[in-house]
C-alpha cells in the first residue's frame, strides 16, 4: 500500500484504506443506475446452497474440531516461521489430505437458530483454502522475503522472485503477476532489503 508495511496491523490499515476505496467505487458505479439491477445468473446461489445441503445431509463423518486441529498442526509444523524445503514438500502433501477430509465433516447440530457448529464447519472450509494456497505458494517460492524465511534460499532474490504469487483453487494452479514499480500517483520508495 505505501511500501513501508510491517506485518502486524497491515490488515487494519488495508481494511480502512481499501474498505473506503471499495465503498466509494460501489457508490460511484451504482450512480445513475436507479433501481435497475442486472439479472443475477440463475445458478448464483447454487454453490453456497450445495455447501449447506452437504452439511445438512451428512450423517456420518469426521468432527470439525478434529480436522481443524490437523490443519492447524500441519501449518504450524510445515509452514511456520522458519521454513525448510523437505518440510514444505511434505506439508503440501499433508495439507491436501486435510483438504480432502474437510469435504466429509459432520455436524450433529442441525438447528436453524444461531447454529455455531455450522458456522465453524463453513469457516473450516474457508480457512483450508487459505492454508492450501499458503503452503503451495511457499513451497514454490525459492527465496526468502518478508515473513517467508527459507533455510535453503536464505536471501531475497529480486531477479527471479520480484513477482506476486497468484493461487487458483481449481487444480491448485499457481501463476505469477509482475510487480508494478511505476508510481501511480505518489513518489516511489526504492525497493530494498528489510533489515532490523
Amino acid at each position: 500500500m505505501h511500501g513501508a508495511n510491517r506485518l502486524g496491523t497491515n490488515s487494519l490499515l488495508d481494511l480502512v484504506v481499501f474498505g473506503k476505496s471499495a465503498g466509494d467505487h460501489v457508490v460511484e458505479s451504482l450512480r445513475g443506475l436507479g433501481r435497475a439491477r442486472p439479472e443475477l445468473p440463475k445458478d448464483a446461489a447454487d454453490r453456497t446452497l450445495a455447501r449447506l445441503a452437504r452439511l445438512e445431509g451428512q450423517k456420518s463423518g469426521e468432527q470439525v474440531h478434529e480436522v481443524r486441529l490437523s490443519m492447524q498442526r500441519t501449518m504450524q509444523e510445515h509452514c511456520g516461521v522458519f521454513r525448510f524445503p523437505d518440510m514444505l514438500e511434505a506439508g503440501v502433501r499433508k495439507i491436501k489430505e486435510v483438504q480432502n477430509r474437510c469435504r466429509h465433516t459432520e455436524i450433529k447440530d442441525k438447528s436453524k437458530v444461531f447454529n455455531t457448529a455450522r458456522i465453524e464447519a463453513l469457516e473450516l472450509e474457508n480457512t483450508i483454502e487459505v492454508a492450501v494456497a499458503t503452503m503451495i505458494s511457499a513451497e514454490a517460492r525459492k527465496e526468502s522475503r518478508g515473513a517467508h524465511d527459507r533455510a535453503d534460499f536464505h536471501e531475497r532474490d529480486d531477479a527471479n522472485w520480484m513477482k506476486h504469487s497468484l493461487f487458483y483453487s481449481e487444480g491448485h494452479r499457481l501463476e505469477y503477476k509482475r510487480v508494478h514499480t511505476k508510481p501511480l500517483s505518489v513518489e516511489m520508495f526504492q525497493p530494498k532489503k528489510r533489515t532490523f
Binding site: 468432527q63 455436524i107 455455531t116 457448529a117
Partner: peptide, 11 residues
C-alpha cells in the same frame, strides 16, 4: 465441551 457436544451454542 463443544468438542463433545457441538449443539452447545455460545459467542
Amino acid at each position: 465441551v463443544k468438542t463433545h457436544d457441538d449443539t452447545l451454542a455460545f459467542r
